[in-house]
Design a protein around this nucleic acid. Sequence first.
DNA 1: GCATATGCCGGTAGCGCTAACGTATTTGTC
DNA 2: GACAAATACGTTAGCGCTACCGGCATATGC
Lengths: 360, 360
Amino acid sequence: MAVRLKDIARDLGVSLITVSKALRGKNDISEETRQRVLTRMAELNYRPNMLARGLASGKSYIVGLVVPDLLHPFFAEFAKSLNGVLRRNNYGLILASSEENPELEQQEIQNVLARGIDALVIASCQPALRGFYGIEDQSTPFVLIDRDFPHLRAHFVGTDDYAAGRLATRHLVQVGRRRIAHIAGPDLSPSADRMRGYKDELTASGILVRQSYIISSSYVEELGEVAGNRIMRKLLDRRPRPDAVFCYNDLTAIGAMSAVMSAGLAIPDDIAFVGCGNVRYSEHLRTPLSSVDQSTSELGEQAGKLALELIGSDCTAPRQIRLQPRLIIRASSQKSAPPARGTSVGKGQSSGRIRSSSRR
Amino acid sequence: MAVRLKDIARDLGVSLITVSKALRGKNDISEETRQRVLTRMAELNYRPNMLARGLASGKSYIVGLVVPDLLHPFFAEFAKSLNGVLRRNNYGLILASSEENPELEQQEIQNVLARGIDALVIASCQPALRGFYGIEDQSTPFVLIDRDFPHLRAHFVGTDDYAAGRLATRHLVQVGRRRIAHIAGPDLSPSADRMRGYKDELTASGILVRQSYIISSSYVEELGEVAGNRIMRKLLDRRPRPDAVFCYNDLTAIGAMSAVMSAGLAIPDDIAFVGCGNVRYSEHLRTPLSSVDQSTSELGEQAGKLALELIGSDCTAPRQIRLQPRLIIRASSQKSAPPARGTSVGKGQSSGRIRSSSRR
DNA sequence: GCATATGCCGGTAGCGCTAACGTATTTGTC
DNA sequence: GACAAATACGTTAGCGCTACCGGCATATGC
C-alpha cells in the first residue's frame, strides 16, 4: 500500500497530527519540524489519500463537470480550459456526459454529487420548459454554462447569444442580403437567444420576419450535420428562395451548405452562410465558413474561477457572466477573397470582453 | 447534509449494517427486509457517500484518464466512448490532461492515483527513448492507449499503426504516385509505426525510400496545422518534387494542403494527400481529405472493458489490443469524384476488426 | 509573583462506510 | 431429540485523514 501519514510520523518520531499539520501548512508547527517532515515526505514520495481527506474534511478538491456531448468541439474545448484552471488550483475534475438525455443527466448529477464534489459545472440539457432542477436544494454550489435557465436565479457563464444572433444577421444584411433564413437549434437558451437576436436585427433593418424562413433542428432527433442538410432542402423550396442562412451552429451549417452545393447552387453567390461556434475546421471547409466565435476557452476559465470562488464563500447573489461574441468573416458570406485567417468584427474593439452583472 | 445509512437504519429500526448489505445486494438478508430498505432508500433519495465507501472498501469505482490534449478530436472521442463504458458499469471518470508535457504528466498521474482510482487509462507523452514509468510499481492496474511502449510489457489498446502506414502508402502507389513523401509526428509509437509501414510499403512496391522525403513535426514545437504548413513548404523545394504526401495526422495534412494551394498547385493533380485519424470534418474540407480511420470510439470501448476487467483479476499477462485501421478515400487522393461519403478500403471485409494477442 | 499570552505539540473523536467475525433463530437429517 | 448447517441479523474494528480541544513549556504584562 502507499505510504501514510502514520508511517512518516513513526519514521520521524513525531505524532501523526504534527505531520498532518506540517503538510497542510498550519502555523502551529515550528519551521524546523515542518522542514523535517516535508523533506521526509518528498523522499518517501508521500501522496495524501484524497478519499480519506475528503471524508474527514468534507472537501474533496474535486469539481464535477456534466456536459451533453464531449465530442462537440465546444464542450471539448471548454472542458480542457476548465481542467486547466482547476489543475492550477490543485483541484481535480470528474467528468460526466448526459448525451443530451435529461433523465441520464439527472442520474449523472446524482452520481457526481455522491462523489462529494465541491462544486458542479453543468451545461444542462433539460428542456427549457421544464427547466433545471435537482441541485438547488443541495448545498453544493453549481454553475450553469452555455445554457441558461433565467427563472432559476443561478450562477451562469456563457456567451451573449442574443448579441451573437444580431451580429451574424447584421453582417448578412450588410453584405446585401434581404431574404435571410434561420436554422435554429433545440429549445434552449442559446438557440432561443440567437433567434431573438436574428429577429430583432431583421426588424431593426426594416426587414420582415418570415416564419417560413425559420426552421428548428433538435439535438434529440439527429445530429447537427444531418439535420442541417435536411432542413436546408426544405428551405430551398421556399418561395422566394432565401439568399442567406444564419445557422444555429457550425455543424448545422456544414450540413446545410452541402445541401446547397448538391442542389447546384453557389456559396455565397446564391446563398450566403454564417454559422456559430467557430469550430477549428471552419476555415478549412470546402467553402470556409463565416462564424460567430464565442471564445470558448475564456468561458472555461471564467467558469472555473467562479466555481472555485463559490466553494469558499457560501451563497452569494447569482452571478451572470456573458462573454461578447465576435464575428469571423470568411468566404461563405463574402464574395471577395477575405484575408487568409479571417477578419474579426466585434461589437467593441477588444475581443472576448466580459460583461458581468448580478441578476435582479 | 445528505441522508446516510445510519438515518435509514434508525428510520427502519434495523441495524446500519443490515441497510448496507441490502444496498449492496449481499445475500444474507431476507428478501423482505431488502425490499423494505430499498424502497425507503428510494423515498429518501439516498446516495451512498462514495468517498466513505472508497476509503472503507479500498475501491473507489473511479477510473482515471490522462490524455495529452482533450481538444484533439481523437482523445475527445476516445474519452466520450470510454466514459460510456464506465457509466454503464457504474464507474466514474476522473480526467487529467498532460498538455503533451512529460513532467506535468507525471504529476497528474500521481494526483489521480492519490484519488484512489481503481485503474488508470493513459496516452502517455513520455519521450519514446525515456519511456514510461511511475505506475509500474504501484498496484493500480493501468492501460496504455494509442502510444505503446513495447519494452514495458504493459496492457495496450490502440490502432495497428504499422498497418495504417502501409494502407495509406499502398493507396498512393495504386493511384499511380511514385514520389511519395511523409510528414511524420513526434517520436512516439504511432508515428514511428506509421513510418515503418510507409517505408516497408514503398520497398515492397519497388520504390526507393528517400530520406529527403521524410520530415518530422513535433508536438512540443507547435500545433499540427502550423507544422504541416511549414514542413510542406520545405517538401515543395525538394527535387524531384513529391507527387504525394502521407501525413501523420489530419491536422498536419490540413496545414500541408493549405501550403500546397498557396503555392498554386492542385490537389490531387499535382500532389495527392492521405491523412490519418479521419476527424469528423475531413470530408468537408476545401479538398475532402482521404484518411486512415482508426475507429476511435471502438478503441475507447475496448480500453474501458479491459480496464474494468483488470480491476477484478490481478496481474494477468500483458494484453495487446490493436484495431485494424481502414482507409477512407476522398478527393485529396483520387481525381474522379468519389462517392459522397467516402469508400471504405480495409485489409479484410469487416471494419475495425480486432486482433488480440499476449505479448511474448 | 500570578495571570494571561503565545508557540509548539499531542490526544481524542469521528467523517460514512465496509470486512470479518459473532450471535440468535430456524431448518434439515438420521 | 441432538447435532450440524443454513439463514438472518448485529457487533466490533478499522480505512486515512482532519477538527477540536487540551497540555506544557517559555515569554510577557503589571
